[in-house]
Structures are given as structure tokens and as C-alpha cells.
Simulated assay, not measured.
Amino acid sequence: MERILVVGVTGAGKSTLARTLSGRLGLPYHEMDALYFDGPGWAVNSRLTEDVSRLVGERRWIIDSIGSPEVRDLLWDRADTVIWLDYPRRVVMPRVLRRSLRRTVTRESLFGGNRETWTGWLSREHPAWWAWSQHGTRRREVGSRTSDPRFAPLDTLRFGHPDDTAAWLASL
């Protein structure tokens, strides 16, 4: 495990697990949202492909994302391990709702100086809406990728509940 993707739906705990693994395994951690959004108004990084190419060219890393379409194959071609947080909606939705509510109330600064807002909750792009609407789609996509012969050398660890993930993490 030297080039790890932590994948799952919004709110599954990808970033939290990736940060923890980074500390335990001594791997450089790269947060995909911080790479993707680089300015006010949720501006997308115009150098995303170049930045991700440089990072995955390194010998060791951990990234918390399946990857946006423009960099997805780059990530999956270079990874040696996929950790899939395949949690049901009943686990993910309370997490994403609590997180978004906290971020909205505290006006927490996020990627590129952006913030979640009360009006943002009405958008289909809001994390809560996104987690709900993309749950099945993301699950099918990760399943398809983990069974794709192109990525056969990947070690895939699939966890269906946070307790399973915690037990595995404790065993490291």
C-alpha cells in the first residue's frame, strides 16, 4: 500500500480515513477537493490534470477520491490500492447533513476560501443533495472499476460499515 485511493460517496468519511492512514503509514495525503477547487465561487483548478499527474507520478501517496472525470483514469492507473467505503445511505446521510449544517452555521472556510451557505442547500450541487442523488451511481461506478480487468492489479478493500473500517484500521 503505497499509492492509495480512498473512495466512496460524499460524506462516507474518505478524507478522515485518508488523513488517518497518511499519519499511520507515512504517506503524503492529497485532498482532492482542495486540488479541484482553487478559488472563490467554487472555481475549478484550470491546472487540475497537470497537478494530479505530478502527484500520482510520485512513488507514494494517498488521495481521497474516485477522481473527477478528467483525472479519474490517471488516478486509477497509478494506484496500487483502493479502499472503498461502501456505506449505505442510512449511514452516510446523517454524517453529511451534520457536516454541512456545522459548516453552514460556523461559516467554515473550505477549498479556495469557499463556504457552504443556507442558499446553497437549495442547489443540486450541495453535498447533501449530491450524496443522496449520486449514491447509487457512485456505488455502481466504483464496483465497475474495481472489477475492470484494466485495474486488476489493484488491491481492493471494501468496507460496508464504519465498524468494519475501524476494525481494519485498528489491525494496521
Rank of each mutant, 00 (worst) to 15 (best):
M1L: 13
M1N: 05
E2H: 14
R3M: 08
R3E: 09
R3S: 10
I4W: 04
L5W: 00
V7R: 09
T10G: 00
A12I: 02
G13C: 07
T16G: 07
L17C: 03
L17T: 03
R19F: 04
R19L: 09
T20P: 03
G23A: 09
G23I: 06
G23H: 04
L25M: 09
G26N: 14
G26V: 13
L27G: 02
H30N: 13
H30V: 15
D33Q: 00
Y36A: 03
G41R: 13
W42V: 06
T49N: 02
V52F: 10
S53I: 02
R54W: 10
V56F: 08
G57M: 13
R60D: 11
I62F: 12
D64V: 02
I66H: 04
I66F: 05
I66D: 02
S68N: 10
S68M: 10
P69M: 13
V71K: 08
R72W: 11
D73I: 00
L74S: 08
L74D: 07
L75V: 12
A79P: 12
D80I: 13
D80H: 12
T81L: 03
V82D: 06
I83S: 09
I83W: 05
W84F: 15
W84K: 09
D86I: 04
P88K: 10
R89E: 15
V92D: 05
V92M: 06
M93I: 15
P94N: 11
L97S: 02
L97Y: 00
L97H: 00
R98I: 09
R99Q: 14
R99K: 12
R99A: 12
R103S: 03
T104E: 06
T104C: 10
T104L: 10
E108T: 11
S109W: 10
G113K: 04
G113T: 05
N114S: 08
R115V: 00
W118M: 01
T119P: 07
T119N: 05
W121Q: 07
R124N: 04
E125W: 01
W130D: 07
A131E: 07
S133Y: 01
G136W: 09
R138V: 13
R139T: 00
E141W: 03
E141A: 07
V142Q: 00
T146I: 15
S147F: 04
D148W: 10
D148N: 15
D148F: 07
R150M: 05
A152C: 07
A152N: 09
L154H: 01
L154P: 00
T156V: 15
L157F: 08
F159W: 12
H161A: 08
P162Q: 12
D163M: 13
D164F: 06
D164S: 13
D164K: 12
A166Y: 08
